[in-house]
Computed example of a mutant assay.
Amino acid sequence: MECNVKHLGTGVVVVSLDGRLNMASAATLRQTIASLVQEGASRFAVDLSRITFMDSSGLGALISGLKTARQAGGDLRIAAPTEQVQLVLQLTNMERVLTPYDSPETAFTSA
Rank of each mutant, 00 (worst) to 15 (best):
S64Y: 11
S64A: 15
S64W: 12
S64K: 07
G65A: 10
G65S: 10
G65P: 00
G65C: 10
G65K: 04
L66D: 01
L66W: 01
K67H: 14
K67G: 10
K67W: 12
T68Y: 06
T68F: 08
A69Y: 03
A69D: 05
A69S: 14
A69W: 02
A69M: 09
R70D: 11
R70T: 15
Q71K: 15
Q71E: 15
Q71D: 15
A72T: 12
A72W: 06
A72V: 13
A72K: 05
A72L: 13
A72N: 09
A72Y: 08
G73H: 13
G74T: 12
D75V: 09
D75E: 15
L76C: 05
L76F: 08
R77H: 13
R77M: 14
R77W: 11
R77Y: 10
I78K: 00
I78N: 01
A79Q: 04
A80K: 03
A80N: 01
P81N: 02
P81Y: 03
T82M: 06
E83A: 13
E83Y: 08
E83N: 07
E83P: 03
Q84H: 08
V85A: 04
V85N: 01
V85K: 00
Q86H: 07
L87R: 10
L87T: 14
L87M: 14
Q90E: 13
Q90K: 11
L91Y: 08
L91E: 11
T92K: 06
T92D: 08
N93Q: 15
M94Q: 02
M94C: 08
R96L: 14
R96I: 14
R96F: 12
R96W: 10
V97G: 04
V97S: 05
L98S: 01
L98H: 02
L98N: 01
L98M: 07
L98E: 01
T99E: 06
T99L: 10
P100M: 11
P100W: 06
P100N: 09
P100F: 05
Y101Q: 11
Y101G: 03
